[in-house]
Amino acid sequence: MSHNLDLAQNHAWNLARTLMVPVTLFRASGEYGVLPTADIDDADDLEVIHEFDPWSPAR
């Protein structure tokens, strides 16, 4: 988890490109985190910031 949004966004994009799966940047308890989108459950108390899709031409 990170308190720095810019750092979290960069790591999220790099993770999506490395794994070649969509990942979601979220905030929980005042910190930012990243998970593969398929691993996020609707019951989780997460504030979704952005989904990074490695197959999308625009970042």
Rank of each mutant, 00 (worst) to 15 (best):
D6W: 01
D6N: 14
W13M: 11
A38I: 14
R17Y: 07
T18Y: 11
A8G: 01
A12S: 09
T18S: 13
A12E: 05
H50L: 06
D45S: 08
P22H: 06
A38H: 11
A28R: 13
V34S: 03
R17G: 05
L35Q: 11
H50N: 09
L46W: 02
D6I: 11
L46I: 07
L35I: 04
I40L: 13
N14E: 15
F26W: 07
A58E: 13
A58M: 09
R59Y: 02
F26S: 03
A12Q: 03
D41M: 07
H50T: 09
H11N: 14
A43V: 11
F26M: 04
Y32V: 02
R27M: 15
A43T: 14
A16H: 01
A28F: 01
A43N: 11
Y32Q: 04
E51W: 00
I40E: 03
G30Y: 03
L7K: 13
T18Q: 13
V34T: 10
L46M: 06
E31N: 12
W55N: 12
I40N: 06
Q9K: 15
G30M: 06
V23P: 01
F52M: 01
A12V: 02
L7N: 10
L46A: 03
N4A: 06
W13P: 00
V34K: 02
A8C: 04
V21Y: 10
F26N: 04
L5D: 01
L25S: 06
L5R: 08
T37R: 05
S2G: 04
